[in-house]
Design a protein around this nucleic acid. Sequence first.
DNA 1: CGAAACCTTGACTTAGGTCAACAAAAGTGG
DNA 2: CCACTTTTGTTGACCTAAGTCAAGGTTTCG
Lengths: 237, 237
Amino acid sequence: MAYFDAGTPGQGAAPRMTGAPICTPSKTSFSEFGGKAVQYDTHAVIYYEGDPAKRLYELVKGSVMLYKLLPDGRRQVVEVLRPGDIFGLAGSDENDCTAETLTNAEIQEIDLKQVERSDALQRTLTRCLTNQMRVLHEHAVLLGRKSAVERVASFLMHLVPDRGGVGCIGPIDDSDDGFDLRLHMTRQEIADYLGLTIETVSRVVSDLKRRGVIRVDRADQIHLNKVCSLCQMTGMH
Amino acid sequence: MAYFDAGTPGQGAAPRMTGAPICTPSKTSFSEFGGKAVQYDTHAVIYYEGDPAKRLYELVKGSVMLYKLLPDGRRQVVEVLRPGDIFGLAGSDENDCTAETLTNAEIQEIDLKQVERSDALQRTLTRCLTNQMRVLHEHAVLLGRKSAVERVASFLMHLVPDRGGVGCIGPIDDSDDGFDLRLHMTRQEIADYLGLTIETVSRVVSDLKRRGVIRVDRADQIHLNKVCSLCQMTGMH
DNA sequence: CGAAACCTTGACTTAGGTCAACAAAAGTGG
DNA sequence: CCACTTTTGTTGACCTAAGTCAAGGTTTCG
């Protein structure tokens, strides 16, 4: 019942539950380049799609999603970012997505003009963008070719460090192989990320529960009973 | 009946039909950095998913697709590249996609070690990657949230320079507003790009034909009768 | 405690997938 | 240049995964 991250739910950082950063934030933090750290609340909009692109952002702590809207209100969450990821580069003078926090977050911000100048920063950018691109490729497979169950299984597996997704290392060994997750997303946000409806996400989660693959402690707090068997449901094995 | 690109079908370059390059290849061509130009035939594999990533590629002429396979054979085409686009950066030591030509193509290749060194190249990379990222974001919306008709309409609109997609400039004016397209993709490739089946793509194309929106001259050669009315079907207006 | 937001479940509908037959191109080799 | 095979595309009949609509149940929070 009690989770490893003792402390106020929805607040205290849960080290075990957040994945290892892909880029190395400490070494490449924008602070060295004149960036400033900004704190955001949960569900705060950092910028809107269509706004003029002024700054480059690096997520230091917490979680951020990028999404796009169609005129009739359909939404697609195109990226869910983790510490170390960068965003705000639009390739034009307007942001192509809306950026909104999923948790309270610490974000390093740096003027785009600064970015132009620094070679070191360009190098970091290339590396980060390449990584995010690979994630987008994999997400395209999910959106274009996977069933609802495979989408949800893949989504959950991505929250397990070093499992699911790109650098999956397979079953760590025998042992019980369980894992606690905090999603930090509502069913609607998950649905909009996975290209499903809220009802379908809910049904798949209930089904995984019924089949004993997961245990749902709170809506956004899920225990994977056997990481391995969930991994088998991602369509990638 | 006769197309503007007089000449052998399937061979002669059709300038009106290829979109304006997003990155500027002439200025940033790898040749300056010690890259070498390589010619590929149609449907040649440049590298396979999982192969060690050795080189960075810049598409100079022709068309290339990147795709990923699931173990059971399902395929998702994750990018369709145009001249000026770069590929081959994997962010790890293995390529995350297979790269295959759609036409015969000229490609500049440069050793990844070279890339590490050059600041100018890094700058180019950042710009190209940012642009490709924006395209991937938009494609995620297509895959996650659009209907079959909207997907096909969006796909066709993307082949019209300056229309559909990111930098759509709306109806150029009155006039007839027609346009000739060469797809350079089979129905299977289109289906795998749009997250549909071959039958659905075929049905949608037939339907657009029946409704007088397009005229199908050959399977991969389509005339848009009224660009504007097709644009209305993309879900973006 | 009560309102609002969020989640779950059931009954029903439908867009797009599957399977199968056939048609039309595009190669191939004599 | 013409049979012949292979590949690619179209269409119809049917099926099903996931969407829609609607009713209730839980959480969360003022």
